[in-house]
Design a protein around this nucleic acid. Structure first.
Lengths: 113, 113
DNA sequence: TGAACATATGAACAATTGTTCATATGTCTT
DNA sequence: AAGACATATGAACAATTGTTCATATGTTCA
């Protein structure tokens, strides 16, 4: 590992001081890890159109109920979506405004230039 | 897989029509996958304070030069950061405003409630 | 040119992850 | 209460990923 140049020392200290806590960074990485899968992104993109039941999501994605349900549970554990029961069906929706914003900005980054 | 209720049919069609292309969703998932690692999040958090050389990043993270360099190359391939050489040193910085925004919103989501 | 420095890269290994299949849970209707 | 329906969950397998170690590339200065 390279030596630390004296003129870098205070940048290092300053940056360390301004960084969010290790706990926050760890949890943030966990959240993005959940965004980092095509099936889950497709689910989130569908839900950004509005609340939806599981069978609709399966139909839109063209995937098995089991695969979708597993991913819904991952999304819910990470608090990216929330659920509501109506009779036999479960309706899912984005958890809060952050989720739509993150998704949107990510898509913009991909779509631009 | 459950049957499609008639009242759901048009929601399904509508949502399918409004979804970004498969290619965009795939690429978006790839971008978030890159955000989904603690080491890379720490690097991005450091770079959000400003441009920085590799040895500073190693020092801030307390990690080996090799591990950091590998992750920098992942971040760069995904166009989350860009680099600039100055003599023997490489300086890295966030690629564009989207990256800081995504990171920031993710951290906010974690820090709130 | 050669030595020293800063960073990059290839191979390899352990650990994590997404899907499928089978089955369980919870809800409604008769 | 039983059967049908909608969704959830456990086990298992293939595939992907992050780090380490060793070494290569590129740059400066004597």
């Amino acid at each position: 590992m390279a030596d630390i140049h004296p003129e870098h020392a205070h940048i290092i200290e300053q940056t360390k001081a301004n960084m969010p806590s290790e706990e926050v960074l760890e949890k943030t990485a966990e959240v993005f890890k959940v965004f980092g899968d095509k099936t889950r992104i497709r689910i989130l993109a569908a839900l950004s159109e509005g609340e939806m039941c599981v069978c609709c999501i399966c139909e839109i994605l063209g995937m098995s109920q089991s695969a979708v349900s597993h991913q819904l549970s991952v999304l819910k554990s990470a608090r990216l979506i929330k659920s509501r029961r109506e009779g036999k069906q479960m309706y899912y929706s984005l958890d809060d405004a952050h989720i739509g914003a993150i998704l949107c900005t990510g898509i913009s980054h991909v779509e631009e230039d």
